[in-house]
Design a protein around this nucleic acid. Structure first.
Length: 429
RNA sequence: GGUGGGGUUCCCGAGUGGCCAAAGGGAUCAGACUGUAAAUCUGACGCGCAAGCUUCGGUGGUUCGAAUCCACCUCCCACCA
């Protein structure tokens, strides 16, 4: 077991997954040389689903689990009521208690699906900090927790500096107190579960170190902290977004197909790093993939592997098959070969869909589908041969869509350019 | 409060009476090339099938004609205090 953890830490370093780590490497390694250590990461319910930005810490918990430790996922039913101000430019609006509670439940289910709760010696545990914070009264909190914090050092934290320095934005006492809550969580988890490591995104460093200090003072225990790097894209745009917005883990918010496509579209310059961050493939294997991709001068395999690994992990075998089947039909297959069931599945799987009456103008349809900004643009696109109906180039701008050309009398798959689609379903009249 | 500068089509930014739907760049979209890449090249980029119509902070005015001139309003910025 000792070797497992040593390997883990070396592996994490090779994957560039450690941004900052508290304390000395020796002590850290020694402590984690014993199996069954408890590692925690908090997830605040700020939406009804986790998104790809949450994956790195979540998978980190799993990495520790695979190395024989116990992952502890904390869902911030309490902290989610407050809002973390770290590196946020503006004060955030509060969510209602009911909404937060609902989100807590949903996040719990998602996390549960990813972390293994049945592994004998390293079962995952999911806790909610509302359980110990919800009932705490103000005086107790201020006396027992607040007393350990120095406002002087709190206002010096980099994470709130911009808020402190910008009077027009400011920071409410509520948000300013957030760090105390998170710190108390660490101390509490240390007391309850002997938790000794908190991990989080690099923006959490301030909160984590505050928790380490509090735990030492309250529990007289030395605990550890580690932050994970902020994932970036080589083109400078924000990771985790597509033109249609955040990439969620919830299949009803981001379909397995879109999720698969998100990873598949990773840039060559990023994809090998992502394989290290997001998959459990060994660094050696990833190195081989890279070497092979460089040998072959054709399309690299890395993106496909990345997309497969992640879709399988989050959406399971079925989700992956769906995603691949749709991708195949859309990009390289002939949509005319799809069965009515598969076409129907397309819309369920997240392809944009439009229900129209039969015998409609193609230009108007392109506009309605959001594939063209105006009829004039639609005509230009058609003229350039950029519009495909069921995989066949639309020859004329004056085409009308009717049942005769619809697949199975109902479906017309419109494609604009290389990767914009809309499935039109003609109503029977 | 005083003075000076400014608000132009998604963004930046030219344009100071007709030749302006408005230079140039960026972003975006498409085509070619490709790997559903990158880079590059080409084209499009207010609306309209078209005649034409609606845009240049707002309102009114001068003029045959205004993004361009005038008045007022509004917002932003700089300096003064």
């Amino acid at each position: 077991m000792t070797t497992d953890t040593t390997r883990l830490l070396d592996d994490l370093q090779q994957r560039n997954l450690i941004a900052q780590k508290s304390g000395d490497d020796e002590g850290f390694r020694e402590y984690f040389s014993e199996p069954g250590r408890v590692v925690y990461c908090g997830f605040d319910p700020t939406a009804d689903s986790l998104h790809v930005g949450h994956l790195v810490p979540l998978l980190m918990l799993k990495r520790f689990q695979l190395a024989g430790h116990k992952p502890l996922a904390l869902i911030g039913g309490a902290t989610g009521m407050i809002g973390d101000p770290s590196f946020k430019a503006t004060e955030r609006s509060l969510n209602s208690a009911g909404l937060v509670a609902e989100w807590v439940t949903k996040l719990g289910q998602q996390i549960n699906g990813i972390l293994d709760a049945d592994t004998p010696d390293s079962a995952a545990r999911i806790v909610n900090n509302a359980d110990w914070m919800g009932g705490m009264d103000v005086l107790t909190f201020l006396r027992d927790v607040g007393k350990y914090f120095s406002v002087n050092s709190m206002i010096g934290k980099e994470s709130v500096k911009q808020r402190i320095n910008r009077p027009e934005q400011g920071i409410s006492f509520t948000e300013f107190s957030y760090s105390l809550l998170q710190s108390y969580d660490f101390a509490e988890l240390n007391r309850r579960y002997d938790c000794a490591l908190q991990i989080g995104g690099n923006d959490q460093w301030g909160n984590i170190t505050a928790g380490i200090d509090l735990t030492r003072r309250m529990n007289r225990q030395q605990v550890f902290g580690m932050t994970l790097p902020l994932i970036t894209k080589s083109d400078g745009t924000k990771f985790g977004k597509t033109e249609s917005g955040t990439v969620w883990l919830d299949p009803t918010k981001t379909s397995p197909y879109s999720f698969y496509q998100f990873w598949l579209n990773s840039a060559d310059t990023d994809v090998y790093d992502y394989l290290k961050y997001y998959t459990f493939l060994s660094v050696e294997e990833i190195g081989c993939i890279k070497a092979e991709d460089e040998q072959r001068s054709a399309k690299p395999e890395a993106q496909r592997i990345l997309a497969e690994q992640l879709t399988l992990l989050i959406h399971g075998e079925e989700g992956l098959v769906q995603a691949q089947r749709i991708s195949q039909a859309m990009f390289s297959g002939d949509p005319r070969l799809l069965t009515p069931e598969e076409l129907q599945q397309l819309s369920l799987d997240g392809a944009p869909t439009l229900a129209l009456d039969s015998d409609v103008d193609l230009q108007d349809t392109l506009v309605a589908a959001g594939l063209a900004g105006s009829r004039r643009i639609a005509r230009e696109l058609i003229g350039a041969g950029a519009v495909l109906l069921n995989g066949v180039v639309a020859e004329s701008a004056d085409i009308r869509l009717d049942k005769a050309q619809a697949l199975h009398g109902r479906y017309i798959l419109i494609r604009k350019g290389k990767k914009h689609f809309c499935l039109v379903e003609l109503n029977r009249r």
